[in-house]
Design a protein around this nucleic acid. Sequence first.
DNA 1: CAGACGTGGGC
DNA 2: TGCCCAAGTCT
Length: 366
Amino acid sequence: MTRATIARTKPAQESAAPAAALLAWYDRHRRHLPWRALPGEPVDPYRVWLSEIMLQQTTVKAVAPYFAAFLARWPTVADLAAAPVEEVMKAWAGLGYYSRARNLHACAIAVARDHDGRFPAEIAGLRALPGVGDYTAAAVGAIAFDLAAPVVDGNVERVVTRLEAVDEPLPGAKPLIRALVADMLDPTRPGDFAQAMMDLGATICTPRRPACALCSLRPFCAAAAEGSQEAYPKKAPKKTGTLRRGAAFVVVRADGALLVGTRPPKGLLGGMTEVPGTAWSADFDEAAALAAAPLPLALHRLPGTVGHVFTHFPLELTVFRADAPSGTPPAPGMRWIAAGEIAGEAFPTVMRKVLAHAGVGPDGRA
DNA sequence: CAGACGTGGGC
DNA sequence: TGCCCAAGTCT
């Protein structure tokens, strides 16, 4: 059974031991990450915020090169605020969850315009910014401003549900977990405590085969005591989406230019660049798809298909290629981009797969 | 509150 | 292969 109820009634003094053990471990084994300040070094809230947005549902490995590129190109929040949103979308292409990029830019503008270029040093002020939810507000508050906020991400959920053997499944257990973290954190080192919990979750208290023998919290862990650590956190079963199909048209002009459009700002792949195509649906009809061709040109159906898996559904695209004579005007609402612009365009990964399938390289050459 | 919202990597 | 996972947010 859960130990949570018991733990909540303990005097505050007793909760200090796990935090002290955790921080002692962190002081020896903290990860060196590009966005992390060295001990004693001043913390730049802009870097903390930028990294936290990028790290939402995204691995450290995937984020690292994007973080470096953004920081080099836009060293301050004012620089980012001054950039055209299209440039931000292009720079974000490939990272996923593209509403983050639009919100990132909106947030930079809000900070520059409404907060004199400085991030608010209170949780409520941070939480009100675009793209900043409960987690990110707490994380930026704790790491950049040493606010004693409970930082709860997927790592912390795993660590705490094991520590206290929380049997209630996620996401229902979130309020309980937040309360447990609030009780446990060290108010003298909130930023280090938050990062220590996340480091522990990422390197020791992993989803599978956690290294309990190396864990500084092992003496306090209810799940480890009964050998049930891998049973936590408990989660509600998730549904898998049904396959959707569609067609994509790769139209190349004689000079190598490619016909593209921009997706609506909101929704799937919002604001990103795409090649023309049909809607993606479960009852896609390949023959009928030909009527959706953007221009009256001979279409060449390429063998095979392009597969891609989104979080909530798998997708299978049939690709048609067409060659347009020089001087062909773009279809309504679309535009031609030069072959040399393809690499820098805001194509999401699924579109890059389509281009590769059609033999169009990043430089527009076969 | 459940579903939408990307992508790449691990086993 | 297929499923799960990764520093969540928005509606």
